[in-house]
Simulated assay, not measured.
Amino acid sequence: MTELAATFKQQAVAEAYQHRPPYPDEVFDRLVHLITDPPRRVLDIGAGDGAIARPLAPRVEHVDAIDFSQPMVDTGRQRPGGDHPNLGWQVNPIEAADLDGPYALVTAGASIHWMPWEETFARIVPQLTPNAQLVVIEHGPVDMPWWDGVLTAIQKHSRKQNHDPKYNVFDAIAERGLLDVNGTARTEPVVYRQRVADYVEQFHSTSSLARDLMSPDEADDFDAIVEEAVRPYAQDGVLELKVQAELSWGRPKIPS
Rank of each mutant, 00 (worst) to 15 (best):
G76E: 03
A185M: 06
V190W: 13
Y233W: 10
A96H: 11
E3G: 08
F170I: 00
Y17A: 06
P93N: 13
G237R: 05
A110W: 06
E246G: 03
Q235M: 09
Q161Y: 07
D74E: 14
T184N: 08
D236M: 05
R40V: 04
F68P: 00
V243Y: 09
I173W: 05
P24A: 13
A185S: 11
R193E: 15
R77C: 10
Y23P: 00
T36F: 05
H62N: 06
D25R: 12
A122Q: 14
V63E: 07
A6M: 06
P130K: 06
E227R: 15
Y233V: 01
T187C: 08
D64L: 15
E228F: 03
H33C: 11
R54N: 03
R176A: 15
L105H: 02
V181F: 04
E228T: 11
P80Y: 11
A197V: 14
K242Q: 13
A14H: 02
V238W: 02
I112C: 02
P85F: 12
V169K: 00
T107W: 05
G101T: 08
A185L: 09
A122C: 08
L105W: 04
Q194F: 04
S69E: 03
R251W: 04
H62A: 13
N182Q: 13
L87V: 04
I52Y: 07
N92E: 12
Q127E: 15
N162P: 00
E246K: 11
Y167C: 03
V150N: 01
I254E: 14
A51D: 02
S111P: 03
I254P: 09
L134R: 00
H62G: 07
W114R: 02
D220E: 13
H163R: 10
D44L: 00
I35C: 02
H19T: 06
A53N: 07
D171E: 12
G237V: 04
E26S: 13
T187K: 09
D64W: 06
L134C: 01
Q244A: 07
A51R: 10
S111I: 01
K166M: 10
